[in-house]
Design a protein around this nucleic acid. Structure first.
Length: 439
RNA sequence: GCGGGCGUAGUGUAGCCUGGUUCAACACGCCUCCCUGUCACGGAGGAGAUCACGGGUUCAAAUCCCGUCGCCCGCGCCA
């Protein structure tokens, strides 16, 4: 007999079927026992005699044959999709046993370290599972939108030759007899590919060795990167971001019961200096001379956007040239500022983007100005030496989008297998205490 | 790197401020028994923690002090 999925059982009333899955819970009434069986599509109540389920308990993997029965009206469970039916078990095959669980998996009340210590198990919890279904949907929507807009998808190298962008700390690796680094961004490669494919995007893991243990940083995260040539204006980039984020939100709204951030027809766009002035007026906190917004400022400006524009997202533009990488295009009207932007969502930056310098000479002089050697960038510079249209791009942090949409407390909850200063699956302090390198 | 906080059964917490009949409580889980309609079933009983580790103060420490380690949060840096 072929296995059917639990969500399909409602179509088999009165028929004999076979279902497979994990035991979600066991309710033992002595002469009758109820099991909730869980597969990837849902939960089904199994009714059986005690002899059939003797020592079976949570997370055992079973294959059950039985008849799908309609439940009497009084016993319908409106909470679950299959609540109108149940399976009367005739035969149960144990595919795998499971040890006693370390905590209540259905009602997870564990601290973050425990949640991550038991990641293979906690991923089975419905709410945790949903986080990653939502994350998958976000990535799909990003990909679908850009495909529809004619972008070329590529896979970016993870091993890179130099500390390409400067700024963020990179992970060093031994590469045969040479030094190499883990990619901190697909930036240079997506630009190179604009020279060949015009419009490109990638979904890629990137690595940051920042010594940051905060609720919004990861050492390895998924970057949703796009880059496009022949732009008419740097504002084209924000327009494209808007299309993507709106598609992500509408796709999520269709499939999930999440509270999508409120968003106006057009996401407000304000200059960083204006934002600082607004924050000063609202809070009397004077950060008007700072070259970036503090986390507290980002929250405040989002409050402002929600109150004034009915949008929980806002573009902050024109960051200071000093604050941005060497390839960032400066504003012709004021060279101290760049044609770049961050997109904030509910108080946190989820996207960074901007126009890039496409002039070879200017790029070379900027590399020098930022303290790097043009020789180290010869490979990348070919793109510009041999003709590059006006272009720009942006990158979304996948985990940060998930965190902000679901209101998660820590970005690590939005990573299947988060890497940070203290953990690579297991806690580093327990795994290899003697190998810790003091720096 | 700096600052603040926490570390009590498998899990989540209470007790700590105001040291002493609490050598430790509650919930979930676990073990035994009862229960044919529950759906995080219910009922009765039971086991499980030398209160992170080391040192100190005291007649007496989970409770106060110091150190170590671990963890969390904020800042810095960064996305």
């Amino acid at each position: 007999m072929e296995r059917i999925l639990i969500s399909e059982t409602i179509k088999y009333i009165g028929q004999k079927v076979k279902v497979s899955g994990w035991v979600n819970s066991r309710r033992d009434h002595g002469k009758i026992v109820f099991l909730d069986l869980r597969d990837r599509t849902g939960i089904l109540q199994i009714v059986c005699v005690p002899d059939l389920v003797k020592e079976i308990n949570e997370e055992w993997v079973l294959e059950i044959e039985g008849v799908v029965q309609e439940r009497p009206a009084k016993m319908i469970n409106p909470e679950i999709e299959t609540g109108k039916v149940e399976l009367s078990a005739e035969n149960i095959k144990i595919l795998a046993k499971a040890e006693t669980l370390p905590f209540d998996l259905r009602d997870l009340k564990v601290t973050l370290p425990t949640l991550l210590d038991y990641r293979p198990l906690t991923l089975r919890n419905e709410k945790i599972n949903d986080i990653f279904k939502i994350k998958e949907q976000i990535i799909r929507s990003f990909r679908k939108t850009l495909e529809d807009l004619g972008f070329y998808e590529f896979q970016s190298p993870i091993i890179t030759p130099t500390n390409a962008e400067g700024g963020a700390e990179v992970f060093h690796i031994n590469y045969y007899d040479y030094n190499a680094y883990l990619a901190q961004s697909p930036q240079l490669y997506k630009q190179i590919l604009v020279g060949a494919f015009e419009k490109v995007f990638t979904v890629t893991n990137i690595f940051r060795a920042e010594p940051s243990m905060t609720t919004r940083h990861l050492s390895e995260y998924i970057s949703l990167d796009a880059e496009m040539g022949f732009i008419n204006s740097w504002e084209d980039l924000m327009d494209t971001c808007e299309i993507i984020i709106k598609n992500i939100f509408s796709d999520l709204q269709i499939k999930f019961k999440t509270s999508i951030p409120q968003i106006s027809d057009k996401i407000p766009r304000i200059k960083m200096r204006e934002a600082q002035q607004i924050i000063f007026e609202r809070t009397k906190r004077d950060n008007r001379k700072e070259i970036d917004l503090e986390p507290e400022d980002e929250k405040e400006i989002c409050n402002f956007a929600k109150e004034k524009y009915g949008s929980e997202l806002i573009f902050i533009t024109h960051y200071p040239t000093k604050k941005r990488p060497f390839y960032t295009f400066t504003d012709p009207a004021d060279e101290d500022y760049t044609l770049s932007f961050d997109l904030l969502c509910r108080g946190l930056e989820i996207t960074t983007g901007g126009q890039r310098i496409n002039d070879y000479g200017k790029l070379v002089s900027n590399i020098k100005k930022w303290g790097n050697k043009p020789e180290d960038f010869e490979f990348y510079l070919q793109t510009f030496k041999y003709g590059m249209p006006p272009e720009g791009g942006f990158a979304f942090g996948a985990e940060r989008i998930v965190k902000q949409i679901l209101g998660l407390e820590n970005v690590r909850e939005a990573s299947l297998f988060p890497r940070d200063m203290e953990r690579v699956d297991q806690r580093l302090s327990l795994l290899q205490p003697k190998k810790k390198i003091k720096r």
